[in-house]
Design a protein around this nucleic acid. Structure first.
Lengths: 300, 300
DNA sequence: TTGCAGCATAACATTAGGTCATGGACACCC
DNA sequence: GGGTGTCCATGACCTAATGTTATGCTGCAA
């Protein structure tokens, strides 16, 4: 039958890409992992890995299953942590889930600052896509979630954060970097790196260009603004992204310029409708809201 | 140290309210549960239960901890469910690339039918020229590709689909529409809309006409069978195209007739040589193959 | 008091989960 | 192209966690 240890092994193998490396990660021997995986395959009656040369490769079933594992697996560490909190009667622990744009830089910095005045508080910060964050909040794995707005879910309340304007990013040496602000016309003929088709942000940006009758050369499409930034940094083209991610790449080969007409991204705070926020979470949210507003003013 | 079995025992005790009942739930003996619980309390350094008379009662710490434990169990259940779905091929993601002839009608209809029995399956279907589809498969962006045969590529396997006969198309009101089948002789002197020079299909059709010594008036040339069909529909001439595209235009100004001698188009299924097909993709392919064969018989 | 339900403890058995040793298949590198 | 190293699978074996049976303690109800 299925057992948590097998799932842990599966996770480790997916993360490291190999049985041996997974064994090192888990601090057990390689044959142990071999057997956990083969037991798991037997329990689930699924082929998760196949040999490819001397290595192994995940099947597409493994990839699908891995998504679900990342979404719903709660390891023993989590329970241990909860027990420690009870033992030490801590001031509290605040579990936060956030979409990548916030999770890679802005939010960690804010959390660090928030914790300075609160020595007995723990925060755990998890990053994933907005839909996964929504799941986490719904399942109670996170008390607060930060994702893209709008959000629709039966048991999750969402509240909009102050809107923040998107920014144009171009490689540092690029001629467009000389301008103080960029408009759709400036992008005519440029290699444009686009966000994945499903995002609302993409739709709004496309609309802005369509309104001005500007034709861009679409070179690359990606869902992650981080990837867009990295590609701009390497000179592959220009893009328009959220200012949070952009700022992480400032000074790393990317020049940030305001984009006009103003297009705003909307983020939402998610919380469970089942239970009310702890006072700690309320404090956090209040301060975070003003930090975002301040950031929006600075960028705008 | 903490271990999963202890957590299971804890949950059983919380659920049943007693050690003995928990033992029955887990199908093990009562002392086993007793010890698991006392080990757990030692590991967590928490008092989880107190004796109350001859029975036990959970402490408030136990109640708090229980919430976290429930989450982890719900997580495992969800993972199990996901695995069952995958096993029954009711879940997963299938990315498909296809040449226009299939992508504009036949394939979407087939996909819709395929998905009817598979609620948790996601399919993404992309259409482009056969060479682009080949690139997608080579790059791993699509698990399955449908393009024209033959295909040569180092890292892509191709397998032929059942051959399908091409059909003659003429404007609805055209004199030739009166005939039940058309031969090269019938096309003498007609304005013929030809497929682009690079296709194998074009070569075979030209050969058929040459064999019968028939001279056509070449009016228009295009690479896309869709364009050929649209032009026939608007009365610009007659043509010979693949039956998939033709059927999309049936009843929209185009009459479809069998063409003799039989000329078949050959399509190929493309898959990466690097990674084997998911069982979901295998199912899809199996059903698709027979759908094409059935279509070929219907048209022939 | 007696009987019984519920739990703890002790001594012993079993097996899940681990290690070590080894071998085969492939990639890599002269 | 043949040695060499990496990676994984398999089998023998070991250990401690998990389970067993036997038994004793406690409080409750008849």
């Amino acid at each position: 039958m299925l057992n948590p240890r097998q799932i842990e092994a599966f996770r480790a193998v997916m993360l490291t890409g190999g049985i041996t490396a997974a064994a090192e990660l888990l601090n057990i021997s390689q044959p142990a992992v071999s057997r956990l995986i083969s037991d798991l395959q037997y329990a689930l009656k699924l082929t998760l890995f196949e040999r490819r040369g001397s290595r192994i490769a995940p099947t597409s079933e493994a990839l699908s299953l891995y998504q679900e594992v990342e979404r719903s697996f709660v390891g023993l560490e989590r329970i241990e942590q909860a027990a420690r909190d009870l033992q030490e009667r801590r001031a509290g622990i605040l579990r936060i889930g956030a979409m990548p744009a916030l999770a890679i830089g802005f939010l960690p910095r804010f959390v660090a600052q928030f914790l300075e005045q609160r020595p007995r508080v723990d925060v755990s910060l998890w990053g994933s896509s907005s839909t996964v964050v929504l799941d986490w909040v719904a399942a109670g794995q996170c008390e607060l979630g930060f994702g893209q707005s709008p959000v629709e879910h039966g048991t999750v309340l969402s509240e909009k954060l102050p809107p923040v304007p998107v920014v144009a990013i171009v490689p540092s040496g690029h001629p467009l970097a000389a301008r103080s602000r960029l408009t759709p016309q400036d992008f005519a003929g440029e290699a444009f790196i686009s966000l994945g088709p499903s995002t609302l942000l993409r739709y709004r940006i496309d609309a802005a260009f369509a309104d001005h009758g500007v034709n861009r050369t679409m070179r690359v499409e990606t869902q992650l603004t981080m990837i867009a930034c990295a590609m701009v940094a390497s000179g592959a083209g220009v893009s328009i992204v959220d200012p949070f991610t952009a700022e992480e790449y400032a000074g790393r080969g990317v020049a940030i310029r305001p984009f006009e007409p103003r297009v705003h991204i909307e983020m939402a705070v998610l919380q469970s409708a089942q239970r009310s926020l702890s006072t700690l979470a309320q404090d956090f949210l209040g301060e975070f809201r003003s930090a975002v507003a301040a950031f929006g003013r600075r960028e705008g």
